[in-house]
Design a binder for these strands. Sequence first.
RNA 1: GCGCUCGUAGCUCAGUUGGAUAGAGUGUUGGCCUCCGAAGCCAAAGGUCGUGGGUUCGACUCCCGCCGAGCGCGCCA
Length: 583
Amino acid sequence: MKQTINDLIAQALHELEQASQIPSELGSNIQVTSSKDPSQGDYASNIALMLAKPAGMPPRDLAQLIADRIAAADSIDRIEVAGPGFINFFVASNTSQSVINSILEQAENFGRSSLGQGNRIQVEFVSANPTGPLHVGHGRGAAYGATLANLLGFVGYEVQREYYVNDAGRQMHIIGTSTWLRYLELCGEDIVFPSNGYQGDYVWDIAATLHRENGERFRRPAAQVFADVGEDAPAGDKEKHIDHLIANAHGLLGEDDYRIVFDLALNTLVDVIRNDLHAFGVDFDRWFSERSLSDEGLIEQAITRLQDNGHVYEQGGALWFRSTEFGDEKDRVVRRDNGQTTYFASDIAYHMDKFDRGFAKVINIWGADHHGYIARVKASLSALGYNADDLEIQLVQFANLFENGAKISMSTRSGEFVTLRQLREDVGLDAARYFYVMRKAEQHMDFDLDLAREQSSDNPVYYLQYAHARICSVRRQCAEKGLEIATQQINLSRLDNVHEQALTKHLSLFPEQVESAARRREPHLVVNYLRELANHFHSWYNAHQFIVDDIELRDARITLAVAIGQVLRNGFALMGVSAPEKM
RNA sequence: GCGCUCGUAGCUCAGUUGGAUAGAGUGUUGGCCUCCGAAGCCAAAGGUCGUGGGUUCGACUCCCGCCGAGCGCGCCA
């Protein structure tokens, strides 16, 4: 419809130019928007306001000139000039009602588009270190990423969902060693657990598995384990303390046995995360291992490529990437003076690999605390010869969590955190998913856990689901009363009250809202849309009876209700929320 | 100190590439079920859009200064 109006305006402008009533080549960027207020028509264009100055005419006069030129069209009832010079279009009711037939015909495909043209796009999200179960802080990225991926698929992209598993590096050695120390305690060794170790109960669980499956095979005397490790905090350096423990674990266990302990911790935690996410309705196509980058020589390959392109230099025994050449604020080390490559080097290799896999677009969803990292990753892509604009980074702000009126901090290390699983069990999957995506991702957000728990029946998601359940209920009523609802030859012109007009108008906006949400990477727009749809529906429901004696009217109203139910379901599917028939 | 993301109703937040009278939820105060589900509807009240300038027909939106919040500035990951 927007396009139709756009074309009508373009044609009118063209004719006016031909007739020399306005100067030519005004550079018309025609904008057509849907109106909020019904008195301002269904659609409006500000074209006259835009062109008033270059045309040297008062906006209202120009608007009238254009409006008079616009050819009559079946789909347009009337055109008005209003306000400072807007042109308002009133769509003919039979045209706006035709959307109902489109919805019923296209069913679960209503709203799909070919915007993505089948291009491959990757969405990488969550990617939390596998050092413990996911907590509520990870939920926002999970829900946002999953919904965005669904949205992109819906508008015609071929989407790949990926989780980057940080299975290399110091944090993983700390979790591995923490597991081993708990295991030694189970063996009866006298262990003083390091302050910098992972202290959550889940570490005990992994240690118990290790003990159950391997007996005392990995047992070593505590005296040897703590030989030469130095003081722990507060008297000593907790970082050095844990690093020495890791080194001792390597030495005492030997590389092969160390790896068994390490991998058990890693695999168990990745499984926990995978299961938690699955239960949260979030599944990935690929779990990409950071360790595989070094195993397959990709890190060396990336560094070599940077060297070949002349973007690397040596200083202080380390190898530096000259990222400042591409806008970063300082150069970055890729290989330390001890010969080890940095985490950043892995990330360069990882992103190189992403682009070598042929994605037209790569979207990374990162916590807002990683914003300082964007410049260097983009710099590395440019240096490798890729178009850095093809990497898009969406930042998700943290949610401040409140419990008992106080802000609570999340620490995987100390084991003090509310898990994503607990949240889901407390408030339910639908409420949790809805809560996370109802707000714009870059907006800071406060999350009151008590409120979420206690008032879970007040959660706004039920408002939407209730609309769907009511529609299903009406259909059940019809069936119980033995009323046949016609599926063809519905006289939709009977839908003539203000509620029905608002509903058909709103339904027709779904496809463009979905496209806009996908293009802007803002799933919350879909949530807003659905809320408005439910609002219109509830108002209508309270104002009018559906099951009436007038068969033609009854058929028309129930057909509209069915169409609303379909659009709600399509929206729910994108959000990962269920569409209950009863509540 | 520099950088990133922000600042909208008592509270939590929307506000479409700059558009018409800045909107929801929640909370407060009133109404609405002999009728398809009251997890709902209708209405009232609630605002110097942090602040001061600038750009223009028009600014919550764009630009600059200031104030305030969160986060980031490592040869950690």
